[in-house]
């Protein structure tokens, strides 16, 4: 048993840094922390939290595999860097590992949204990434959560209770927020505004997806995948079935480890 490697996958995103611990394709633990200004610090913190959650000592760790937008900046001197994986590759491998039938993953991140198409081995085929005006969908969601003084789950729950179809401006998160506030100021129910916000995000994602081959099965990654309301709207707009992955926010981190052999011995 001890000759099997324990690897940590670290996905350093614009907003959050995610860490997973894996041994021979088995996920042992995970943790997420805000990236903040220092991705390396955040990576170390996420890793320590993941270790703490699993009860494993740092000394057993063979090394780390990095991915994500800040992946290349991560350097933990005490740990061997086993590999650095481009985020699209990590997304494809991770999603494929979590669901062997999947061929497309839609990843709604804090700042970037992408759809990745891969083959029956999880090999990257094509990618589409959001237009500039659609930057920051995840950040927008968190901002609205904070503005409404609710939790992420509660925002989703509110949206599910919506009875009236209202809309916010669709060009960007800034206009959307400005109009969401305006709707509230007109006295529109918060449930309907919450639904408009989620529909806005889903529309932006779905619009982006129309230029790439969406091959079944389609899976969704990123923290927003946990929003039930969002997942209700997405298949309707895509006119395709979609599945939420297990541990949606850790897909990249998991994929990074898998790309580097998943902790198996060579």
């Amino acid at each position: 048993m001890n000759n099997r490697k324990l690897l940590a996958g670290i996905d350093a995103g614009h907003v959050n840094t995610k860490a997973v611990l894996m041994r021979e394709e088995e996920i042992l633990g995970y943790a997420v922390v805000p990236t903040g200004f220092n991705p390396a610090d955040a990576a170390e913190k996420a890793l320590n939290n993941a270790l703490y959650n699993t009860g494993l000592p740092l000394s057993q760790l063979t090394g780390i595999v990095c991915t994500g937008i800040f992946g290349e900046t991560i350097n933990i001197p005490t740990l061997a860097l086993v590999g650095s994986v481009p985020e699209h590759v990590a997304d494809a491998r991770g999603a494929f590992f979590l669901n062997k039938n999947s061929r497309t993953v839609i990843d709604i991140g804090g700042n970037i949204t992408k759809a990745v198409h891969y083959d029956s081995n999880g090999g990257l085929l094509d990618v589409i990434q959001n237009d500039k005006c659609a930057d920051g969908m995840g950040i927008f969601y968190s901002t609205m959560v904070k503005a409404f003084g609710v939790s992420e789950e509660e925002l989703s729950e509110l949206a599910l209770k919506s009875t009236k179809n209202v809309s916010v401006a669709i060009t960007c998160a800034l206009s959307a927020e400005s109009e969401a506030i305006d709707l509230l100021c007109q006295g529109v129910e918060i449930t309907d505004v919450a639904d408009a916000i989620l529909r806005f995000i889903v529309q932006r994602v779905a619009a982006m997806c129309t230029t790439i081959t969406l091959t079944q099965e389609i899976v969704v990654a990123g923290g927003l995948a946990k929003s039930k309301a969002l997942m209700n709207h997405l298949p309707v707009l895509l006119k395709e079935d979609v599945k939420v992955l297990n541990l949606p926010e850790y897909v990249g981190a998991i994929g990074a480890v898998i790309t580097c052999g998943g902790g198996k011995n060579e």
């Binding site: 614009h14 200004f37 991705p39 800040f70 700042n111 930057d135 920051g136 960007c172 800034l174």
Partner: peptide, 11 residues
């Protein structure tokens, strides 16, 4: 939002 994206990338 552009500025925010650029700032995040400067990090």
């Amino acid at each position: 939002i552009y500025a925010q994206s650029e700032a995040l990338d400067l990090i």
